[in-house]
Design a protein around this nucleic acid. Structure first.
Lengths: 95, 95
DNA sequence: GGCACTATATATAAGGG
DNA sequence: TCCCTTATATATAGTGC
């Protein structure tokens, strides 16, 4: 999305990396917010900026509550937390 | 983003709400993944589907580690966790 | 439920101030 | 750095299978 197709690999230039982080962080939070409202769900988003600062977002409930619910669910129902399928050409770590 | 502009409010139809959740959840995870790679950061995303199922994602590190780092940072540096600014016309809950 | 299509809305990379 | 613009890449709503 932009004047040029951006390859998904680490942006080596420090300035550009921080700029991209700021823009995409805002976009991500906006989309998390929209998802929480449209689908009436609980959501939590935790990010650390390239300089190590914490950014977090949660929808209807306090982030601590969402985290706690997540931890409990992962402990008590390990099989139910997996996503069904993702793109084949990425190798992100997921649960 | 689609044939029609969608107002950001709860989708009342159960089927449509679940369909929108599935599509947007995938989009959100993809963007979280891209952000983690492009900016070389830690990130964690926790969502509960309309039916209550847990979906979560984390980038380079285990989600438990990212959550723990977040909790510690929020406890020890409450002032540093705030985002600078968001859209004025939304009222999401953030930290 | 999921997958594919496609018209449209949205996000964003570059660049300028 | 941050804000604005704009061309372009991407996400996705509606639809059919």
């Amino acid at each position: 999305m932009g004047r040029v197709k951006l390859e998904i690999k680490k942006i080596e230039n420090n300035i550009n990396r921080q700029v991209t982080f700021s823009k995409r962080r805002n976009g991500l939070i906006k989309k998390a917010y929209e998802l929480s409202v449209l689908c009436d769900i609980d959501i939590a988003l935790i990010m650390f900026s390239p300089s190590g600062r914490l950014s977090s977002f949660s929808g209807r409930r306090r982030i601590e509550d969402v985290i706690e619910k997540c931890i409990n669910m992962r402990e008590h129902d390990k099989g139910g937390a997996k996503l069904d399928k993702m793109d084949k050409d990425v190798s992100w770590h997921q649960f």
